[in-house]
Structure formats: structure tokens, C-alpha cells
Design a protein around this nucleic acid. Structure first.
Lengths: 132, 132
DNA sequence: ATATTAAAGACTGTATTTATCTATGATAAT
DNA sequence: ATTATCATAGATAAATACAGTCTTTAATAT
């Protein structure tokens, strides 16, 4: 069980946008160069973040992406959910009389982790350079 | 990010073995029928559990599998590690000056979940029928 | 010897991930 | 209006992982 690379790129992208400040507009070109990944590939990831409401996009010349929420409000979990979806880690497909007794424990475990990642904000890991 | 079906089968198998008691020897044939899965497929999963030291196998007629540890000592995490391996969920492959600051948070989150699943024992979810 | 049982290897089909390439649409600057 | 810039969407392809089967080999009780 592993998080996808896409999740990694998404986390780093948001992180980078926070570093650069909430107002700065960044093009996918700049971001793709930063992370050494193709423009079209990163583009798809960014579109997912747009759809999740984390960033917003402006097309056309001088366009690009900006954060849509105050950085203090963007948690790790927000980004992960945007890319990985919100389905449970564990889903027992076997037949049971009633509910699968293992499912409950697995769900609780997942919730432990998710609560932690909801509390943790990306800004907590970013060193912000003061605005002159 | 999802756990594999193999992990589900493994958890249910150990759970079933605990129900049946520590001394009962079970063949892969019986188990495969119980979970409606092919013998050879389940066999591979069981072999992984053997290699992880959770169960023991005896070849030949009247052979089968038995638990190798007292049920009270078998945690969810033991089984999951046996099947999924012990690698981290999140591994940032990007270049960084020093360490990836996101990695640390992701590792902590994983640890939260794993600690929970180490405390939780499979026997906690099993209804044991009293011996006669 | 034979029947039973586990282990191991080769192989297959499907799904997911990780991309790339090629349009298409939107917008600002000229 | 035209052009350059930028995001979005679709089609495709390679690589990997997952789920599962088939066949052979090895161990052991009867």
C-alpha cells in the first residue's frame, strides 16, 4: 500500500505555492520545471486540485494557478483526498452474517491517521521568507 | 491507496484459525473453500504468513497450518506487515537540499496508524466458542 | 507405493500508475 | 484581429502491480 507519485507532486506543489505567497500566480510550466516532470502530466494533477477547490486557475496569457484558501487552512489530508479520493483503505468484500468485524478496526485505524493529517497543515513544514 | 485483497484474506485466515483454537490444524483446502478462493492462490498467501513466523505448516497427509504464537499476541499489524511488506506508505523521490520536510509528517501519520494496529489484536474481534 | 498436503515457478489477464502527444479553449498584449 | 501564452481535455502507450490459474516438485502419514 503506497501513496502515488501524483500525491507527492500535489503536496509539493501546494507547499511551493505557500512558500511563494498567496498572491503569486504560478504557471504549470514553472512548476513542472521545478519538479522535473512534464507539463501535461503535472497539469492533470493541478486540475484535480482545482476541482477539489484548493487552488484556482486563470487561462490565457499571464494566467496560472493561485491558492484559493488561506495557507493556514490547507491540511495534508485536503491534498491527499483531492488526489487519492476519499474511499476507505480497507474494504472487505467477503460474505459475512452481519458486518465484517475486521472492517471496523481497519476503519478506526485509517481515521487515526486521517485525523492527524487533517490537523497537520502544509504551512507547518514550510519556511517562509519574510517579505522584505 | 488501498490494502490488497491478499491482506484481507490473510486477516480472515488468521482470524478463522484463532476461532478454531490454537491446536487445530487446518488445510489450505478447507480455508480456500471457506473464503471462496482458489487453493493455489490462498496457498501463496499462507506461505507468506509462514515466512513471517505467524503460522506453521506441516506437509504431507494430515498436514496443514497452525498458529505459531498465542492468539493474544497476534496483532492486525503483524498480519498486514507479512503481506504488504514493511516499506513506508510515502517515499518522496524528489531532490531536496536536505531531507524532504513532507516525508517526516507522512511518516508520523503512518506511525499513528501502525501503533493503533499493533495494539489491536485479532482475537479482540473474534467470538470464541467455548470448548464443549 | 500411494494418497495427501504444502511450496514454488511459470504464466495470464486486468487494472492502475505514470506518463506523453495532440488538440481545443480562454485571455492578455500587440 | 492576430498572436503568444496558458489551462483543459482526450487519446494513447509503457510500466508496474494485483489477482488469479496451472503445473511441477517436495514432504510425510498410512
Amino acid at each position: 500500500m503506497k501513496y502515488t507519485k501524483a500525491t507527492n507532486y500535489a503536496l509539493h506543489t501546494i507547499s511551493f505555492m505557500i512558500e511563494r505567497g498567496q498572491n503569486e500566480k504560478l504557471s504549470v510550466h514553472v512548476l513542472a520545471e521545478r519538479f522535473q516532470v512534464s507539463v501535461t502530466y503535472l497539469s492533470k494533477i493541478l486540475t484535480q486540485l482545482v476541482k477539489a477547490g484548493l487552488i484556482e486557475s486563470v487561462s490565457g496569457a499571464n494566467g496560472g494557478y493561485t491558492l484559493r484558501k488561506p495557507p493556514e487552512n490547507i491540511s495534508f489530508m485536503d491534498v491527499i483526498w483531492a488526489i487519492e479520493g476519499t474511499g476507505a483503505f480497507f474494504e472487505c468484500g467477503l460474505q459475512h452474517e452481519s458486518k465484517c468485524p475486521l472492517q471496523k478496526v481497519m476503519n478506526e485505524a485509517e481515521t487515526m491517521m486521517e485525523q492527524y493529517l487533517q490537523k497537520k497543515k502544509l504551512i507547518d513544514t514550510v519556511y517562509i521568507v519574510a517579505d522584505e
